[in-house]
């Protein structure tokens, strides 16, 4: 640049040497985002436009006939709003319950003295070596047999089978060994003297949990929230097997169902965009916490 005050040869040569690296990094950036950009752009185009633009850079540019027709068509053909609402409810409830249940357990395991706490922690962490797929199919069989108390008018009725409910999509994922582990690690870093001082002042254990430890654990709560939310929003295998009822269907099973209706590609891209963009927006807004949270699953080894 002409305004550079000291045109020393060193820095400039170094800048020149950096160009290939930058070009490579930028080319790779394109490689990683082009499908998402293509999805987003195509969701506003009619099919003949999508196919006509394929041969050129226009496939990635908002040019030609653009409209929201694909979006309105999605809502006409399937209850996409309902699917979105289901996924929001299921993910949100699991995140909230997961934070409470796992942090309570971690609190008792890390800050209170009772027999068996070390063994229980080891057992909980040991469950991490068993992937969900190992017991997913027996679990379908099992939840189909589980009882539930249902209030029918004024009397309680015992029903059998959890298939086609919200609870079958939520409860199996509330208690999470990795969340317990993350909370436990974090709680260890909070000085125990705080508890003792509070005990002197007559605070109950639950009071210490609620008023001292949890308010200091924002980062751990955020990490657990992100690590619970993402797989819940994206969950596919489990709801595929336990939910038939359209009214309870989450977004990822909903899109596959929509896809099988042989609808136009533009509409599929519109649906895909609707269920992807909210998560991507969250990710871009909190990218540092997202990446650090997900990377933190890398320290468990």
């Amino acid at each position: 640049m002409a305004t550079t005050p000291t045109p020393a040869p060193g820095p400039r040569r170094r800048t020149l040497r950096r160009i290939p690296g930058h070009l490579l990094r930028s080319a790779l950036a394109l490689l990683f985002v082009f499908p998402v950009v293509f999805m987003l752009i195509s969701s506003f185009k009619p099919d003949q436009q999508i196919f006509a633009d394929l041969g050129s850079i226009k496939a990635f540019l908002p040019v030609g006939q653009l409209s929201l027709d694909n979006y309105t068509a999605v809502f006409d053909r399937v209850p996409a709003g309902r699917f979105l609402l289901n996924s929001i409810v299921i993910s949100a409830v699991t995140v909230v319950l997961g934070i409470v249940v796992n942090s309570l357990a971690a609190f008792a395991l890390s800050r209170m003295r009772w027999p068996g706490r070390r063994l229980l922690l080891v057992l909980i962490i040991a469950t991490l070596i068993v992937p969900f797929e190992t017991f997913a199919l027996p679990l379908v069989w099992w939840v189909n047999k589980l009882p539930w108390l249902e209030l029918n008018g004024f009397h309680l009725a015992l029903t059998e089978g959890w298939l086609d409910t919200y609870r079958v999509q939520i409860l199996p994922f509330v208690a999470n060994a990795f969340s317990v582990f993350l909370f436990h690690q974090y709680f260890q870093s909070i000085p125990k003297e705080l508890d003792e001082a509070a005990r002197m002042d007559g605070a109950s254990w639950f009071g210490i949990y609620r008023r001292i430890v949890m308010p200091l654990s924002g980062p751990a709560v955020a990490t657990v929230a992100i690590l619970t939310f993402l797989p819940m929003w994206n969950s596919y295998l489990w709801p595929l097997m336990v939910v038939q009822d359209e009214n309870l269907r989450p977004v990822m099973v909903g899109i596959q169902y929509f896809f099988q209706l042989n609808v136009s590609w533009g509409q599929i891209m519109a649906y895909s965009t609707m269920i992807t963009v909210p998560v991507l927006a969250l990710f871009l807004a909190f990218q540092r916490s997202f990446i650090n949270s997900i990377a933190s699953s890398g320290v468990k080894g």
């Binding site: 990683f32 985002v33 499908p35 998402v36 999805m39 993402l230 929003w233 994206n234 596919y236 990822m252 899109i255 596959q256 895909s272 269920i275 992807t276 998560v279 991507l280 990710f283 997202f290 997900i294």
Partner: peptide, 9 residues
Amino acid sequence: VPVVTSMVV
């Protein structure tokens, strides 16, 4: 970006 995008999508 692909990591946080659903595998189904």
